[in-house]
Amino acid sequence: MSLIKQKKKILLVIIAVIAVSAIILSFALKKDDAIATINGKAITKDDLYNEMVKQYGSETVDQLIANKIVASEATKQKITVSESDVNKQIEKLQESYGGEEAFNSALESNNTTLSAVKEDMKNYLTIKKLLEPEIEITEEEMKTYFEENKDSFAQAEQIKASHILVADEKTAKEVKQMLENGGDFPALAKEYSTDDSTKDQGGELGYFSKGDMVTEFDNAAFSLPVNQISDPVKTEYGYHIIKVEAKKEAKEANYDDSKAEIKEQLLEQKIDTEYTTWLEEKKKDYDIKNTLAEV
């Protein structure tokens, strides 16, 4: 599993924990208020709270206890996680979701916020710093991992491009003419593009490989020289004006070039498997009482 995919898995866990915790805590107040009725009989916040506690309460409190232990151990070892560290991981998560807009939609659909995810990412990075000194990764492990996952370390040909998407050919030709007359591509993208996910960034699509886009777009983009602008390209989405900004040649997998990434991926895997054991050992040093565990 790649680092980005691993982090995406972590985000899903974070979202689940935050969502459940928020529900349980929100219904802890004014529990006797009715939230629904059926044939005049009320279903109260107290009813819902009790049901949520039965299903998720103990697990959620266990997570909160774990977070407190992690924070305490970090303080003992003078471990800190900077805002910059957190933001770098959030950027990788956004990339794994296909951009900031898709990432924010995932947060919204799961009733959580960016600030809440950042807090839990900070907790995860703290765990990583606590466990990393105790984890050994050998050269043999790294070479074996490389051989078993060689395809993932190869780099396909990639291009970096921007586009302006419009609904009809007439508008596309008008935009192309404006560009030929010296018009600014990002400014015209903001004004004319119907692609809401990229227009405010000047139509930027970032780097992508062949096969990531629809066939007509791919064929046009990969045939363009750098800094050239295409004629209108018709796809199922409308008409595109494409500008290629940079290219990366295909590269075969190389162990020496990939060592840092391999080590990071193995570290992520080992943290995932060893965290539970580490936490259970640390719990022995704390006086812990979880009354929900007895319900």
Results as ranks from 00 to 15, higher is better:
2 S>A: 10
3 L>Q: 08
4 I>V: 13
10 I>M: 15
20 V>T: 05
28 A>I: 08
32 D>A: 05
35 I>W: 04
41 K>L: 13
41 K>M: 12
43 I>D: 02
45 K>H: 06
48 L>V: 03
63 Q>M: 12
66 A>V: 12
68 K>P: 07
68 K>L: 13
69 I>A: 12
71 A>W: 09
72 S>C: 07
73 E>F: 07
77 Q>S: 13
78 K>M: 13
92 K>D: 15
96 S>A: 14
99 G>D: 11
104 N>W: 11
106 A>G: 03
109 S>Q: 11
111 N>R: 07
111 N>M: 10
118 K>N: 05
125 L>C: 00
128 K>W: 06
128 K>D: 08
130 L>N: 04
134 E>L: 15
139 E>P: 01
140 E>H: 05
140 E>G: 04
141 E>T: 05
147 E>G: 00
151 D>S: 12
152 S>D: 15
155 Q>P: 02
158 Q>Y: 05
171 T>L: 10
172 A>Q: 01
175 V>L: 01
177 Q>M: 10
180 E>C: 05
181 N>V: 00
188 L>D: 04
189 A>G: 07
191 E>F: 01
195 D>R: 00
197 S>I: 13
211 G>N: 03
216 E>Q: 11
219 N>R: 11
219 N>P: 08
220 A>S: 08
223 S>G: 07
226 V>E: 04
230 S>C: 05
231 D>M: 08
235 T>D: 12
236 E>T: 15
236 E>N: 15
237 Y>I: 12
237 Y>T: 14
239 Y>L: 03
247 K>S: 09
250 A>T: 05
264 E>N: 06
265 Q>D: 08
270 K>A: 00
271 I>S: 00
276 T>K: 14
279 L>A: 06
280 E>N: 10
281 E>T: 09
283 K>Q: 10
283 K>I: 01
288 I>V: 02
288 I>W: 04
293 A>C: 02
